[in-house]
Simulated assay, not measured.
Amino acid sequence: MANVKWSVDPTHSEVQFKVKHLMITTVTGYFEKFTVEAESEDENFNGASNIVFTADVNSISTNNEQRDTHLKSGDFFDVEKHDEIRFVGKNYENVGGNEYKLHGDLTIRDVTKPVTVDVEFGGTVVDPYGQHKAGFTVTGKISRKEFGLTWNAVTEAGSVVVSDEIKLQAEVQLVKQG
């Protein structure tokens, strides 16, 4: 039997990141344009493989144009040279029930590092239009400095402006293809 192919339903999916600012509040940002492709042996995502996520860095939004421009600059993502973030899943591991670990390689600014994210599989359903859909909540954490995002400033009191830890959160709905 051929693998089932899946693609993201962008109108029912979102990719967010959260970072501490001045170590007292959290700023949330998201990518407006991204893709997710995957294959599975069946509609329950057994044997999931070829899981590829890409985000268009030019679509970054933190609801602040000045901050978004800074994030696109050479201080952070350097979109003129690196306009895409890419994650390639290598192992989709069941850790009990509908909980999974997705191990893969994350590439930001031409730096690729192994990353593991937590995945909660919400199940599959056929929508009112006859489309087979699968839902996932993905969470994880990365160190931005490991990917060359090292810009920082220090306040008068000596606190850092932007934390190293970035929290990742995605709500992903995939649509069965073909």
Rank of each mutant, 00 (worst) to 15 (best):
R109V: 04
L102Q: 05
L168I: 14
L71C: 05
D75M: 11
V27G: 02
N58M: 10
V161R: 05
V160F: 06
V57E: 01
E32V: 06
S61C: 13
H82A: 07
G123I: 04
I60F: 09
G29T: 13
Q169V: 11
Q16I: 14
V119Y: 00
V161W: 02
Y100A: 07
H21F: 05
G74I: 13
G158Q: 04
A134W: 00
L71M: 10
T25A: 12
L22P: 02
N50I: 12
T137Y: 01
G122P: 06
S163K: 07
A55F: 06
G47R: 03
T124Q: 10
V15F: 13
V115W: 05
D56N: 15
F34K: 01
N152I: 11
D118K: 02
Y100S: 13
V88C: 04
F53Q: 00
N58Q: 13
T35M: 02
H70F: 08
S49E: 11
Q16A: 14
N44T: 12
K141W: 06
I60H: 08
T107I: 06
H21D: 08
T11M: 11
K133D: 00
G89S: 07
V172N: 00
L174Q: 03
R86K: 15
L102R: 00
E171V: 14
T107E: 13
P10L: 11
E120L: 12
F87Y: 13
E165H: 01
R144K: 08
T124A: 12
H12Q: 10
A55D: 04
F17T: 10
I60K: 06
V52G: 00
G158L: 09
L174H: 01
I85L: 13
S13C: 09
T116L: 06
S40H: 05
T62G: 14
G104M: 01
G148N: 01
L149K: 01
T25P: 05
T139N: 14
N98V: 08
I108H: 08
G158P: 10
V95K: 12
V119E: 02
T107K: 03
A2W: 04
E165G: 00
T28C: 03
